[in-house]
């Protein structure tokens, strides 16, 4: 259960060459949003769009494939996408909204759907939530420290950021720089330390690079809504899949990382409770499965 409830898990990638080139890994989020837009399954999607400041995203409502692709790739700092959902419905007039969310964002959205105290006419308009695996998130200044100080490169020269194989990767046009992940520790935001969700357990479909080879993504199909869209996209040939049994490193690595995150977070939660600090989650002694996301 460290990977949450799901109907199916596969290795997958977008078959579109342009998406493959622009996307972080398998282009699952870009591919599914473009497909869902084309098919009218969503009217638009809230994504982490580019701004004038390199690597500092802002939530934006993408209404076309071009806008989706402009937002492709992982940013590793805050993009409060949930904020933009209301605008997507009220100002853009969307009836079926897609959104990409990291686990904490998915929790804000799902809580709003189950308990929409002050949020009117929005809960039922979230048509597709694509979740991204997330170990932690960094304030923008932390990111600047990695890039400008530790790696010593100009922000504007950076073409891609990535985390994998124990390293933080910074790719420019002519070089590939790395920082050991150990050196990034202490720079993550503190709120991540009580988070028990690595694989976005509450999304309709969740995806990330871990578990599959370069250029592919691991995909969990979780809800009925997610299953409908994902199956259609695969049948339409927009997404190609492989069994997780046929790829390396496979689910084992995901299970390990998810367990690590949950174990560490559980310890912090228990410590906070012992100190009398507030924390919305149950302590390890209060629940049956100490690693459950409750």
């Amino acid at each position: 259960m460290v990977l949450g409830t799901y109907k199916e898990v596969v290795a997958a990638r977008s078959t579109d060459k342009q998406i493959q080139k622009l996307a972080q890994d398998g282009g699952i989020v870009s591919g599914l949003f473009c497909y869902a837009l084309d098919e009218g399954l969503i009217d638009g999607a809230v994504v982490a769009g580019p701004t004038d400041v390199m690597w500092k995203p802002e939530p934006m409502v993408a209404m076309s494939s071009d806008e989706i692709l402009a937002a492709a790739g992982t940013k590793y700092t805050f993009s409060p996408n949930v904020w933009m959902l209301k605008k997507a419905v009220r100002q853009y007039g969307l009836e079926k909204v897609g959104t990409v969310a990291i686990p904490c964002q998915s929790m804000g959205i799902r809580k709003m759907q189950s308990y929409p105290f002050g949020v009117r006419h929005l809960a039922d308009k979230i048509a597709l939530m694509l979740g991204i695996f997330c170990m932690e998130n960094f304030p923008y200044e932390s990111l600047r420290t990695f890039i400008s100080e530790k790696a010593g490169v100009d922000f504007d020269l950076v073409e891609k950021l990535d985390i994998g194989k124990g390293k933080f990767w910074i790719k420019t046009a002519d070089q590939m720089l790395t920082i050991p992940l150990k050196e990034t520790h202490g720079y993550e935001q503190n709120g991540c330390k009580v988070c028990l969700d690595y694989v976005c357990e509450l999304a309709d479909v969740s995806t990330g690079s871990v578990g599959t080879p370069d250029g592919w993504s691991t995909v969990f199909v979780r809800t009925d809504a997610g299953e409908t869209v994902f199956k259609q996209a695969v049948e339409a040939g927009v997404i190609e899949t492989k069994s997780m049994d046929d790829v390396k490193p496979g689910l084992g690595l995901l299970e390990k990382l998810a367990t690590d995150k949950k174990t560490k977070a559980m310890k912090v939660i228990d410590e906070r409770k012992a100190m009398g600090l507030p924390v919305p989650f149950k302590g390890s002694g209060e629940k049956e499965d100490p690693l459950a996301n409750v």
Partner: peptide, 18 residues
């Protein structure tokens, strides 16, 4: 006082949306 000061904020934007 209850979220940011308590080291709990994760910047999701739900508050601003709500």
């Amino acid at each position: 006082t209850k979220v940011v000061n308590q080291a709990l904020c994760i910047g999701c934007g739900t508050c601003a949306m709500a």
